[in-house]
Nucleic acid binder design. Sequence first.
RNA 1: GGCGCCAUCGUCUAGCCUGGUCUAGGACAUCGGCUUUUCAAGCCGGUAACACGGGUUCAAAUCCCGUUGGCGCUACCA
Length: 472
Amino acid sequence: MTITRFAPSPTGYLHIGGVRTALYNFLLARQNNGKFILRIEDTDKVRSKKEYEDDIIKSLDWLSLKWDEFYRQSDRRKIYSDYLSLLLKNKKAFYCSHTKNELETERQEAKLKGKPQVHWCNQKTNRSLRPANAVIRLAVEQGRVIKFKDLIRGEIAINTNTLGDFVIAKSLNEPLYNFAAVVDDSEMSVTDVIRGEEHISNTPKQILILEALNKKAPNFAHLPLILGQDKAKLSKRHGAASLNEFKKKGYLPEALINFLALLGWHPSDNREHFSLSELIKEFSLNRIQKSSAIFDLKKLESLNSYYLKKLNFDDFFKLAIQYLKEDNLIDFKWIQDAGIDLNKALLLEKERMKKLCDIKSVVDIYFKKNLDYKPELLAWKNQNFKEIKIILNEIKEVVGKLDFFDKISIQKTLEDISVKYQDRGKVFWPFRVAISGKEKSASPTEIADALGKKETLRRIDIALNILNDKEG
RNA sequence: GGCGCCAUCGUCUAGCCUGGUCUAGGACAUCGGCUUUUCAAGCCGGUAACACGGGUUCAAAUCCCGUUGGCGCUACCA
């Protein structure tokens, strides 16, 4: 059975690169009817925080990346300490009491000689009592070549001369990453370890630990990194790097999943759109890219607007309202009193949004009590104010008498008026600006439809006042 | 510095394994057009890439070597 795991350390909010790693692990497990494990690697007591663990859980949940088993390394200290004792007893590991200063001196010397900066210990002790401040190192054989077959990159070979007797724990109760991860992968029967490229250099160390433990190594697959526009590893200074920031901006989980899946993986055909279940079917490790990928926000936006368009109105409505309420952006009571149709307004803007936070433009156009713009904005091309006033008054009169105030009737009314002015822009433009207050907006007939007769007329009056102020 | 990984349009990539069908395909972005009362959307079209050098071969984006460049690791972090 295929067993994969996502093993983040809770030292920061879930990173977008982490999401992709989680996704690929999830996909491989699901397509093989296997198991996907979530394991919180919080061996670093200083940097790990509950807040970050919660964020990781919440984020994966939001993305529908469901795990079958959950573990937290801090709950498993006994297991690591037992294995550590065993290694010590078998002389596969030892206590090293060299001080940090001594080690640092060694390192400087090695650097000067152009040699790997590693420590080969000459004072190994294995007694059961830990010498003061000693750390536990693995006893490594010198000059051995460790080979492993990476599922994405092929064979990778590293000489143990570049490793040294590396540290596997600070003490019996304080295992380090490489040790705890390896013990867990083996205990949890993980078959495929899919993780970021930055772990390639950890892999030979983990293979050595596995050997010492007399355990079988899993398959390894190292994913290319996700980079920012400047080709440096994606981080906060590139704008957003953690998932919750994208969520906050109103990106949909479907878009994020689709985008991240294609950032490093590609199907054999030209398909661009994939749902989670389609990905489970199509995904394969051997179509993963070897080189790192630059994160392109424009492509994410494009994908997001695609999924936004696909969203049915009820779901969209819920999300939009939730978004508006969170930031306390609109006065629902006023909207109701004014007779504005919230549904129509949201539907109208849905088509032109790239992400949910664009909904603020809706607030601007539909739900503002006071509109403020320069009178010049009301003019179509070189239209003079006098003509605008005449037209606006005419619209006000005819539209005011409309029994059925819907977009078809409004459209017809405006077209009738347009006939004598030849250029339809002369009628449509001032009307559109009057009711939207904006240089750019959706079609005026539809906006008017959403606003309702009362609010439409009120806004025409506002426009007339703005024009009068100009004269006065 | 040491060790490792990588290299096709601006970006994500197809093609590379199994050399010829590649005057290198798609998507995003960009530019132009259509539509049009302004946007957006939609439709149509354009610009744009095999890092460099050497091999191997009748033939190389594809195989080999080297150079250059980018990135990662180099912790008693993960």
